[in-house]
Design a protein around this nucleic acid. Sequence first.
DNA 1: CGTGTCATGTAATCAGTTACATGATTCA
DNA 2: TGAATCATGTAACTGATTACATGACACG
Lengths: 183, 183
Amino acid sequence: MSRVNKTQFGILSLLSKKDMSGYDIKQMASKVAPFHWSESNAQIYPILKALEKEELVESHVDQKSGDRNRRIYTITTKGLDALKLWLAEPTEPTPAREELLLKLTAGEHAPIPQFIQQLETFRDQILHRQKALVTIQNNIDSAHAEGLRKMYLQMTYDYAALTLEAKLAWCEKSLQTLREYKG
Amino acid sequence: MSRVNKTQFGILSLLSKKDMSGYDIKQMASKVAPFHWSESNAQIYPILKALEKEELVESHVDQKSGDRNRRIYTITTKGLDALKLWLAEPTEPTPAREELLLKLTAGEHAPIPQFIQQLETFRDQILHRQKALVTIQNNIDSAHAEGLRKMYLQMTYDYAALTLEAKLAWCEKSLQTLREYKG
DNA sequence: CGTGTCATGTAATCAGTTACATGATTCA
DNA sequence: TGAATCATGTAACTGATTACATGACACG
């Protein structure tokens, strides 16, 4: 149970909505889920092949669009079943890995202004993500938008929004603490 | 720059505070930083060996405590320098991986009550972590507690507290949305 | 005709986990 | 004496990233 690849389900999940090529999947992932799943870049091609071998997806070479060697993947009934099985499985918590916090635990070995800078960079990264999130929200509002599907998309948006907000608040608070430390 | 192992710095960071054995490091990590760094369990032994080869740490077999084959590691000046260098480096954002959110993007393929259960489990995991966090806060208040060091420890505690709170809020909100969906 | 994007892939490497193996000490 | 904990390690594997390689098409 614990020995299963999760990225393959991310791919199946995307294919359950629309037939796509490997390239499309990469694009979609970075457009729709950049906050909770890495684009898994060039690893999707081997996974697609493995999925096809297991008969969870089928593929054919696309004829349209200039015959550009595009291989389109389609999810099979077996693939949908596998996806549903995964959805029903218990979800283990993700072990977090925040490099900045790891650095903070060794904070006493660096000058305070250095950490102020680290935190400012962190804050900028958050602000940048928040901007990107607005774009995603627009995608949700316009393109798809049908009942259940929209609700679930909105949920993932909310998750990102709320956690980013919390991180930003922490950042501001910590910056103030650092700036006020000893004068 | 991007091709460096971060866990080794976690280990150096702990050794910068106190000489320790591999076993101690494992214990300490799970006690002091369970929220932002995994215990990296049985991988610390090879890393310790690698660090010793690079002369970033030294070791000796402990004589006390019943001669129990304990190898104690000490950080070297070179090791401290490496640690400080890492602290000064820019910190890239961690790509998040939240399996539950990945499942939500395929939400339309499962019955709503199933996702209610998933979210309830998620909430329980958060509540559990929040309890554990109180213990850590006690550790900070009593054991260590000296100026700068305490401040940085407190910061990592705050980070965990704030992000857990945000996730809990999201969880409650989403549960309500699901329960109210169509009656 | 050259740059950018579309499109697919492989090889090498690194990071991390699981499962296993070994043995000493402590304490009920 | 048997279970729990202390203590160190290895082998095999999985997951993910980096860097590379190839080539077609679109456009200005």
